[in-house]
């Protein structure tokens, strides 16, 4: 998948009814993938959940406004959504990091307990999330896209703007690190996350 390029559509699809209008098409596309994109931003990119939903919505509006005819023709249209949302989040996170010295720390809190926080009542799922968060950012993203969302190596590379070789290497390292972090994998195997 390559970027959708600069082909500007003639405006957003009209809010129309009847048949499979562009609007219905993009609505279905949105409904099908938005949860996965939000989950990727929150748990793989470390973006706060309410803001992640806003970013996901902004990006789908961008796609609708400019790129829908191009994106819909891609083999995996959602990959562009992931890619653009990840970039938007990274930029916003960078801006926040610069402001953090002056801001109220409470604004930057995340709902998920830090792995070092022994007071937090973390359940099994949160414990897994906490372990994923111990991975370096890029490894976390590669792991999520490859294993949680089943993107191919080349699609993952395109979404993150890195090489396929790097994806392979980072996935390998991320898996090894996860094995260390999970410790007794038999315990995890026995427990269902769902």
């Amino acid at each position: 998948m390559s970027g959708p390029g600069h082909q500007a559509a003639s405006g957003p699809p009209a809010v129309d009814v009847g048949g499979q209008s562009p609007y219905e098409e993009i609505s279905q596309f949105f409904a099908k993938h938005y949860k996965a994109v939000v989950a990727f931003l929150v748990y793989a990119c470390g973006f706060p959940a309410p803001d992640a939903e806003e970013v996901v919505q902004d990006i789908i509006l961008v796609i609708r406004e400019r790129y829908w005819p191009t994106v819909r023709a891609l083999e995996k249209p959602e990959a562009y959504w992931y890619k653009a949302a990840e970039r938007r989040c990274r930029r916003l996170l960078g801006q926040r990091a610069k402001r953090i010295a002056e801001g109220d720390p409470d604004e930057h809190l995340l709902g998920v307990a830090h792995p070092a926080d022994q007071f937090a009542a973390v359940d099994r799922r949160q414990a897994l999330i906490a372990r994923i968060r111990e991975l370096p950012p890029r490894q976390r993203q590669v792991l999520w896209l490859r294993l949680a969302e089943d993107f191919s190596e080349s699609e993952t590379a395109e979404i993150l703007g890195i090489s396929v070789g790097s994806v392979k290497r980072q996935l390998h390292d991320a898996k090894e690190r996860m094995k260390e972090l999970l410790g007794d994998s038999a315990t995890w195997e026995a427990d269902q996350i769902l």
Partner: peptide, 27 residues
């Protein structure tokens, strides 16, 4: 095991999010 855990985690997280109908309305 990691693959299964990640998959399960992603699916359970999606289950917690608003239903598609609400999302489409918001969209």
């Amino acid at each position: 095991i990691i693959h299964k855990l990640l998959h399960g985690l992603a699916e359970s997280l999606k289950d917690e999010m608003p239903a598609s109908g609400e999302a489409i309305l918001a969209f």
